[in-house]
């Protein structure tokens, strides 16, 4: 069955739907979410994720209450680090490109939140510079190491492991998926690495209107 213990992620890719999306089928602007969670290309998580109950610091240095400040928005949350050369920038770039294809109305209902797993290097300024590279509206969150481990604990993501790369360089382990919290504040779908722009294009317009009814 499509259930799995928390923290692990089960991936379902409806390949037929994927192929259709790849050839540019467009979804309408209006009309609620999907008729079933199976219509999404994201991976289903059971039980669903709650939004972290935590206040971090945004890139302007202001407190950011993850629950309160994303209330009412489709919220895409990704945890990574700016010195990640591979999957983090790929994920942020793919999301930023797909957002450009949405209507203004759809776009205005989405918040993309990046939280760092590497608070030692990722200051608010460093994160801002990096995010602006993709989309100036992306929200970037940092905090002290205790706050970040609290965040990761709430997300069932585990402690970041450092891999020394020499000469002061190091890699940081982090979750290889973005979590989509719909407007009801539940995170039932995650988007693991390997998800393409076409997959996002397929899901986002439905997610914006999703109520899981």
């Amino acid at each position: 069955m499509r259930t799995i213990r928390p923290g692990l992620v089960f991936l379902l890719l409806a390949l037929a739907g994927f192929a259709a999306a790849a050839c540019g089928g467009d979804d309408g602007d209006e009309g609620g979410g999907a008729s079933s969670i199976d219509d999404y290309l994201g991976a289903q998580v059971t039980p669903f994720f709650e939004k972290p109950d935590l206040v971090l610091t945004d890139t302007e240095g202001r407190p950011f209450d993850i629950r309160k400040d994303t209330e009412g928005f489709l919220t895409i949350l990704y945890v990574g680090y700016t010195h990640c050369p591979d999957i983090c920038p790929t994920t942020m770039y793919d999301i930023s490109e797909v957002l450009k294809t949405l209507t203004e109305k759809q776009r205005s209902q989405i918040k993309v939140v990046f939280a760092t797993a590497d608070p030692d290097r990722d200051t608010p300024e460093v994160i801002r510079k990096w995010l602006d590279h993709f989309d100036t509206t992306f929200i970037g969150l940092s905090g002290d190491s205790r706050q970040i481990s609290d965040l990761l604990k709430q997300l069932l993501m585990g402690t970041p492991q450092r891999t020394d790369l020499g000469e002061g360089n190091y890699a940081v382990s982090h979750a290889a998926y973005a979590i989509a919290y719909t407007k009801d504040n539940t995170g039932r779908l995650v988007y693991p690495f390997g998800i393409t722009q076409d997959d996002w294009k397929h899901d986002l317009p439905m997610l914006v209107n999703e109520t899981w009814k």
Binding site: G7, L8, V9, C84, P85, D86, I87, M157, G158, Q161, T163, L165, G166, E167, N169, A171, S173, H174, A175, A176, Y177, P192, F193
Partner: peptide, 19 residues
Amino acid sequence: TKVEVHEMVMEGGTAKMQA
């Protein structure tokens, strides 16, 4: 000045980068 061949290793949904 520092170039390496790296791989991404996926462990239970966690991505880890290493040489």
